[in-house]
Amino acid sequence: MADFENETDESLLVHVQHGDQRAFAVLVTRHVKKFHAAAYRMCSDAHESEDIVQEAFLKLWSKPQMWDPSRGAKFSTWFYRIITNLAIDRMRRKKPVAVGEVIDVFADTRANQEDMVYENQRQAALEGAIQTLPDRQKAALNLCFYEGLSNREAADILGVSVKALESLLVRAKTALKEELSKRGMLNEPARRQSYA
Protein backbone atom coordinates (compact mmCIF):
# COMPACT_ATOMS: atom_id res chain seq x y z
CA MET A 1 0.00 0.00 0.00
CA ALA A 2 2.98 2.25 0.66
CA ASP A 3 3.59 2.54 -3.07
CA PHE A 4 0.25 4.23 -3.58
CA GLU A 5 0.38 6.69 -0.70
CA ASN A 6 2.13 9.39 -2.71
CA GLU A 7 0.08 8.99 -5.84
CA THR A 8 -2.56 11.50 -6.88
CA ASP A 9 -6.24 10.61 -6.71
CA GLU A 10 -6.43 10.56 -10.47
CA SER A 11 -3.59 8.06 -10.89
CA LEU A 12 -5.08 5.91 -8.12
CA LEU A 13 -8.31 5.88 -10.09
CA VAL A 14 -6.47 4.51 -13.11
CA HIS A 15 -5.28 1.63 -10.91
CA VAL A 16 -8.81 1.17 -9.60
CA GLN A 17 -10.02 0.92 -13.18
CA HIS A 18 -7.62 -2.02 -13.55
CA GLY A 19 -9.14 -3.67 -10.49
CA ASP A 20 -6.39 -2.82 -8.01
CA GLN A 21 -7.87 -3.14 -4.56
CA ARG A 22 -4.91 -1.53 -2.78
CA ALA A 23 -5.36 1.66 -4.79
CA PHE A 24 -9.04 1.63 -3.90
CA ALA A 25 -8.20 1.18 -0.22
CA VAL A 26 -5.86 4.19 -0.31
CA LEU A 27 -8.51 6.29 -2.01
CA VAL A 28 -11.14 5.33 0.56
CA THR A 29 -8.85 5.93 3.54
CA ARG A 30 -7.78 9.30 2.15
CA HIS A 31 -11.27 10.69 1.51
CA VAL A 32 -13.82 8.87 3.61
CA LYS A 33 -13.91 11.45 6.41
CA LYS A 34 -14.42 14.40 4.10
CA PHE A 35 -17.19 12.74 2.12
CA HIS A 36 -18.87 11.43 5.25
CA ALA A 37 -19.08 14.99 6.53
CA ALA A 38 -20.43 16.17 3.17
CA ALA A 39 -23.07 13.44 3.18
CA TYR A 40 -24.03 14.26 6.77
CA ARG A 41 -24.48 17.95 5.93
CA MET A 42 -26.85 16.98 3.16
CA CYS A 43 -29.06 14.60 5.13
CA SER A 44 -28.42 15.39 8.84
CA ASP A 45 -28.52 11.70 9.69
CA ALA A 46 -25.42 9.88 10.93
CA HIS A 47 -26.50 6.41 9.78
CA GLU A 48 -27.79 7.61 6.47
CA SER A 49 -24.55 9.47 5.76
CA GLU A 50 -22.54 6.28 6.39
CA ASP A 51 -24.74 4.41 3.93
CA ILE A 52 -24.37 7.17 1.34
CA VAL A 53 -20.57 7.18 1.54
CA GLN A 54 -20.43 3.39 1.42
CA GLU A 55 -22.78 3.21 -1.52
CA ALA A 56 -20.84 5.89 -3.40
CA PHE A 57 -17.49 4.17 -2.92
CA LEU A 58 -18.87 0.75 -3.83
CA LYS A 59 -20.40 2.26 -6.93
CA LEU A 60 -16.98 3.60 -7.83
CA TRP A 61 -15.43 0.17 -7.24
CA SER A 62 -18.00 -1.74 -9.27
CA LYS A 63 -18.14 0.79 -12.10
CA PRO A 64 -14.80 2.63 -12.11
CA GLN A 65 -15.26 3.54 -15.78
CA MET A 66 -17.80 6.13 -14.59
CA TRP A 67 -14.85 8.43 -14.00
CA ASP A 68 -13.58 9.71 -17.31
CA PRO A 69 -10.07 11.20 -17.03
CA SER A 70 -10.37 12.83 -20.47
CA ARG A 71 -12.89 15.28 -19.03
CA GLY A 72 -10.18 16.67 -16.77
CA ALA A 73 -12.35 16.69 -13.66
CA LYS A 74 -10.69 16.35 -10.28
CA PHE A 75 -11.65 13.18 -8.43
CA SER A 76 -12.97 15.04 -5.39
CA THR A 77 -15.15 17.37 -7.48
CA TRP A 78 -16.56 14.43 -9.41
CA PHE A 79 -17.12 12.40 -6.25
CA TYR A 80 -18.92 15.30 -4.53
CA ARG A 81 -21.42 15.10 -7.35
CA ILE A 82 -22.03 11.41 -6.67
CA ILE A 83 -22.41 12.02 -2.94
CA THR A 84 -24.72 15.00 -3.47
CA ASN A 85 -26.93 13.16 -5.95
CA LEU A 86 -27.15 10.07 -3.76
CA ALA A 87 -28.01 12.20 -0.73
CA ILE A 88 -30.73 14.10 -2.64
CA ASP A 89 -32.20 10.81 -3.92
CA ARG A 90 -32.30 9.32 -0.44
CA MET A 91 -33.77 12.44 1.15
CA ARG A 92 -36.58 12.46 -1.40
CA ARG A 93 -37.41 8.87 -0.55
CA LYS A 94 -37.15 9.38 3.18
CA LYS A 95 -39.38 11.12 5.69
CA PRO A 96 -38.17 14.50 7.05
CA VAL A 97 -35.48 14.35 9.73
CA ALA A 98 -36.81 14.46 13.28
CA VAL A 99 -35.18 17.13 15.43
CA GLY A 100 -34.59 14.52 18.14
CA GLU A 101 -32.14 12.69 15.90
CA VAL A 102 -30.05 15.80 15.62
CA ILE A 103 -30.14 16.50 19.32
CA ASP A 104 -28.99 13.00 20.26
CA VAL A 105 -25.75 13.52 18.41
CA PHE A 106 -24.54 16.00 21.01
CA ALA A 107 -25.24 13.98 24.10
CA ASP A 108 -22.30 13.49 26.47
CA THR A 109 -19.93 15.75 24.57
CA ARG A 110 -20.25 18.79 26.87
CA ALA A 111 -19.26 18.92 30.47
CA ASN A 112 -21.98 21.12 31.82
CA GLN A 113 -25.54 19.81 31.61
CA GLU A 114 -27.15 23.21 31.16
CA ASP A 115 -24.71 24.27 28.48
CA MET A 116 -25.22 20.94 26.78
CA VAL A 117 -28.96 21.48 26.58
CA TYR A 118 -28.43 25.01 25.31
CA GLU A 119 -25.98 23.89 22.65
CA ASN A 120 -28.19 21.02 21.60
CA GLN A 121 -31.07 23.39 21.13
CA ARG A 122 -28.96 25.78 19.08
CA GLN A 123 -27.59 22.99 16.94
CA ALA A 124 -31.03 21.49 16.43
CA ALA A 125 -32.39 24.92 15.45
CA LEU A 126 -29.52 25.53 13.04
CA GLU A 127 -29.77 22.07 11.52
CA GLY A 128 -33.54 22.38 11.32
CA ALA A 129 -33.25 25.74 9.56
CA ILE A 130 -30.77 24.36 7.02
CA GLN A 131 -32.98 21.34 6.41
CA THR A 132 -35.89 23.60 5.47
CA LEU A 133 -33.96 24.76 2.41
CA PRO A 134 -34.79 23.20 -0.95
CA ASP A 135 -32.29 20.46 -1.94
CA ARG A 136 -30.38 22.47 -4.50
CA GLN A 137 -30.01 25.51 -2.27
CA LYS A 138 -28.81 23.30 0.54
CA ALA A 139 -26.33 21.55 -1.78
CA ALA A 140 -25.02 24.90 -3.01
CA LEU A 141 -24.55 26.12 0.56
CA ASN A 142 -22.83 22.91 1.63
CA LEU A 143 -20.46 22.79 -1.31
CA CYS A 144 -19.44 26.45 -1.26
CA PHE A 145 -19.61 27.34 2.42
CA TYR A 146 -18.76 24.10 4.21
CA GLU A 147 -16.70 22.17 1.67
CA GLY A 148 -14.89 25.29 0.48
CA LEU A 149 -15.30 24.59 -3.23
CA SER A 150 -15.16 27.40 -5.75
CA ASN A 151 -18.36 28.59 -7.39
CA ARG A 152 -17.19 27.08 -10.66
CA GLU A 153 -16.63 23.65 -9.08
CA ALA A 154 -19.93 23.75 -7.20
CA ALA A 155 -21.74 24.81 -10.38
CA ASP A 156 -20.18 21.84 -12.24
CA ILE A 157 -21.28 19.46 -9.51
CA LEU A 158 -24.84 20.72 -9.56
CA GLY A 159 -24.90 20.95 -13.34
CA VAL A 160 -25.81 24.65 -13.43
CA SER A 161 -24.12 27.84 -14.59
CA VAL A 162 -22.04 29.89 -12.16
CA LYS A 163 -24.72 32.60 -12.24
CA ALA A 164 -27.42 30.11 -11.34
CA LEU A 165 -25.27 28.82 -8.50
CA GLU A 166 -24.72 32.32 -7.15
CA SER A 167 -28.45 32.84 -7.26
CA LEU A 168 -28.99 29.59 -5.33
CA LEU A 169 -26.51 30.76 -2.70
CA VAL A 170 -28.11 34.17 -2.29
CA ARG A 171 -31.56 32.62 -1.93
CA ALA A 172 -30.26 30.04 0.53
CA LYS A 173 -28.63 32.66 2.74
CA THR A 174 -31.66 34.95 2.61
CA ALA A 175 -33.97 32.12 3.58
CA LEU A 176 -31.62 31.02 6.36
CA LYS A 177 -31.31 34.53 7.76
CA GLU A 178 -35.07 34.73 7.95
CA GLU A 179 -35.46 31.27 9.46
CA LEU A 180 -32.70 31.76 12.03
CA SER A 181 -34.08 35.15 13.03
CA LYS A 182 -37.45 33.52 13.61
CA ARG A 183 -35.74 30.97 15.84
CA GLY A 184 -33.90 33.75 17.66
CA MET A 185 -30.46 32.47 16.73
CA LEU A 186 -29.09 35.59 15.09
CA ASN A 187 -29.61 37.59 18.26
CA GLU A 188 -27.98 35.40 20.90
CA PRO A 189 -24.34 34.30 20.83
CA ALA A 190 -23.17 30.71 21.23
CA ARG A 191 -21.70 29.73 24.60
CA ARG A 192 -18.34 28.81 23.17
CA GLN A 193 -16.65 28.89 26.56
CA SER A 194 -18.78 25.95 27.64
CA TYR A 195 -17.21 23.51 25.15
CA ALA A 196 -15.32 20.74 26.79
Partner: peptide, 17 residues
Protein backbone atom coordinates in the same frame (compact mmCIF):
# COMPACT_ATOMS: atom_id res chain seq x y z
CA UNK B 1 -25.02 34.68 9.61
CA UNK B 2 -21.68 33.12 8.64
CA UNK B 3 -20.64 32.95 12.31
CA UNK B 4 -23.79 31.06 13.18
CA UNK B 5 -23.36 28.73 10.20
CA UNK B 6 -19.81 27.94 11.34
CA UNK B 7 -21.18 26.58 14.61
CA UNK B 8 -22.73 23.68 12.74
CA UNK B 9 -21.66 20.37 14.20
CA UNK B 10 -20.78 17.24 12.25
CA UNK B 11 -20.47 14.02 14.28
CA UNK B 12 -17.28 12.00 14.02
CA UNK B 13 -17.60 9.17 11.56
CA UNK B 14 -17.20 5.62 12.95
CA UNK B 15 -13.53 4.71 13.04
CA UNK B 16 -14.13 1.50 11.10
CA UNK B 17 -16.09 3.01 8.23
Amino acid sequence: LDDVLRERFVPEMPSNL
